[in-house]
Amino acid sequence: MLAYILRRIGMAALVMFVALSVNFSIPRLMPGDPVEQVLAAASAAGGQSGNMADTARVMRARLGLDQPMWRQYLSYLGNSARLDLGVSVASYPQPVSEIVLAGLPWTVGLLGTATLISFVLGTVLGALMAWPKAPRVLKVLAVPVVVLSAIPYFILGLVLMALLGIAWPVLPVAGGYPFGVVLNPDIASALAIARHAVLPGLSIVLASLGTWAVAMRGMVVGVLGEDYIMLAEAKGLSERRIFLAYGLRNALLPQFTALALRLGLLVSGAILVEVIFAYPGIGYRLYVAIGQKDVFVVQGIVLLLSAAIAGAMLVLDLLYPLIDPRVAAGHA
């Protein structure tokens, strides 16, 4: 068991090392110099004063770009370990970690909640859709749910916005909180935040509900054909016990893998939803940074994304033996 845990942690560390290395090299392999690009943009906007070459040299030194490559690589690894992701080029000298950390709670809060809600609802719905003795209503319900899942979430977001935000304005359509309001840790602020999260959250839930339901239905149908379901029936177990402990429990295993991957992808998960609703999360900030060619911010967010996926997979790997005893024994 200890060997299993250590192997998994080692694997996650290896993934992070590769991600860091790739993340280090890609911007440096790209043509163009971010410092010159920013300065050129600044001078085009008329904000240039003094010697351009001097400014560029100082900025390069500040960004560490004047060092030999191997030293840049080592200090990059060291800085990343300390969560120092460098400074933004576009809004110099704001640290990248500050920008990322400011967006993280919004994204995790909105997408984490929406993903968990759609996972739970979709999984239960899918399982019941496949269960022969479930109410008929659920089988009818399957059709609209699957149709909804075929619509991209950003289109769904626009439709919801038009319906509930503009045609019948009951919910705010933009931002993470009311414009010009200072957030306090009180109920009023929490309610305001929740109200702003409803539309983007709803579009994600509605669009992904069907995916979870269809995947789960397929899994339950497969499990229902297994011999252990028949033996459970032959044992005279109650319908409920067979459904929960024999059907659902086994069908859930692949579903958890999908959930862990989805949670890992959260950080970048719904960029378009955040852009459409001007939601101040990571995705929105990534969108802005790409527009401004803010290399270090993009790099920082991509690194965060890799870390989130590696972290989610590690957590899944460590929890999986608890839900499937075959895994720790090295059978899977």
């Binding site: 011999d227 029936e233 032959a234 044992k235 295993l253």
Partner: peptide
């Protein structure tokens, strides 16, 4: 009546037990 009056020894021994429960748990639920 199932199991109490008439019991089944299934065909697929490989797959007849629930993989996520211990044998004891599969006796206890019976």
């Amino acid at each position: 009546m199932r199991a109490a009056r008439i019991a089944l020894v299934p065909q697929g021994a490989m797959n007849a037990l629930n993989p996520v429960l211990t044998c004891a748990a599969q006796f206890e639920d019976l």
